[in-house]
């Protein structure tokens, strides 16, 4: 089976600064891959390269079997693209409908086709009432919805969306997620980047982490969660803890690992929710501390942060 998108050892430098150094990934039709990583990790650069909006320095990319270097136009036909911060990338003195008609013409769509697609997308994404408003008069979230519609105007089999729900209110974001989910179920291949892990939780079949210019980790969200090796996290307020108490909590046999990302709460990942909590409370009692604590399930965010910390440690070593 042909992968929808394959990238192999992609490299890119901006001047002397290397951004991607051998990034590889692949995803299929009917699958959503979420690209995660820290700011500046190279996610946006990788998405731009896949969308043929940026030239790579090395490596190979194919979309539905078309080689990006040898058939860039075919790749552009097949991909829908939303760039980061692209909510300004339409004409403010044209209406939403006029903008979409113009961008449809750039993709060779006939007026009737464009109008039919506009009607479908406006209904699905909920902006029928704003079709005849000037783009410049829309709110940031409304603009972003129209930009997502622009990317999907030509009903592409591959969608490359860089932070698609950024700036959307919860209702609009849920609507976009629902539509994208239905598209993927129909066979579209979706790559998205997002710092909103709710989007990733709701949409992603697989997650890939961009770190150090490559994609060292990828897997299903469940696999990433499983790698933390814990079911729950007990978070204890750091301000109430002494150094000795912190050391004792870290050394507990029931604490699989300590999550250090939050500056206010010390996270203790525990495999057994009952026994783990009991052992933590016992330490607090033995130390004579009155500390606030809370218990919750391990989240994808915990898993991502753990993986990134482990990758940092590997690079440092």
């Amino acid at each position: 089976m042909i992968e929808a998108v394959t990238a192999e050892a992609v490299c890119k430098r901006y001047g002397a600064v290397p951004v991607l150094e051998g990034a590889s990934l692949a995803f299929r039709r009917g699958e959503t891959l979420a690209l995660l990583g820290r700011n500046g990790a190279g996610k946006t650069t990788l998405v731009k390269i896949l969308a043929a909006a940026l030239a790579k320095d090395g490596g190979r990319v194919a979309v539905l079997g078309w080689d990006l270097d040898r058939a860039p136009e075919q790749v552009q036909h097949l991909c829908g693209y939303v760039g980061q911060d692209s909510e300004r990338s339409a004409y403010p003195r044209l209406t939403v409908r006029e903008n979409l008609r113009f961008f449809g013409a750039l993709r060779g769509l006939r007026r009737r086709q464009v109008d039919a697609r506009i009607a479908v997308l406006a209904g699905e994404l909920g902006f029928e009432d704003r079709l005849d408003a000037l783009f410049g008069t829309l709110s940031g979230g409304q603009k972003q919805t129209a930009i997502i519609a622009r990317a999907l105007l030509h009903d592409p089999p591959v969608a490359l969306l860089d932070e698609p729900t950024k700036g959307l209110d919860p209702v609009a974001a849920a609507r976009v997620r629902g539509f994208l989910r239905r598209q993927v179920r129909s066979g579209m291949a979706l790559l998205l980047t997002s710092h909103i892990l709710g989007d990733v939780d709701a949409l992603a079949d697989r997650v890939a982490l961009v770190h150090g210019g490559s994609v060292p980790v990828s897997g299903t969200p469940a696999a990433l969660l499983g790698a933390v090796g814990a079911a729950d996290v007990v978070e204890v307020e750091r301000a109430s803890l002494t150094a000795r108490a912190r050391a004792r909590l870290s050394a507990l046999a029931t604490v699989v690992r300590v999550l250090d990302a939050d500056p206010e709460w010390m996270g203790c990942a525990i495999r057994d929710p009952v026994a783990g909590l009991a052992s933590i409370l016992a330490v607090l009692q033995a130390e004579g501390l009155q500390a606030s604590f809370r218990q919750r399930a391990v989240t994808l965010q915990d898993a991502v942060l753990e993986h990134l910390s482990a990758l940092d440690a590997r690079v440092a070593a």
């Binding site: 058939a71 097949l78 089999p157 066979g187």
Partner: peptide, 15 residues
């Protein structure tokens, strides 16, 4: 990675 795909895309899109 070919100059042309090994099988046509079943969902070619409208572009």
């Amino acid at each position: 990675l070919q100059a042309s795909p090994t099988s046509p895309a079943p969902w070619p899109g409208l572009s």
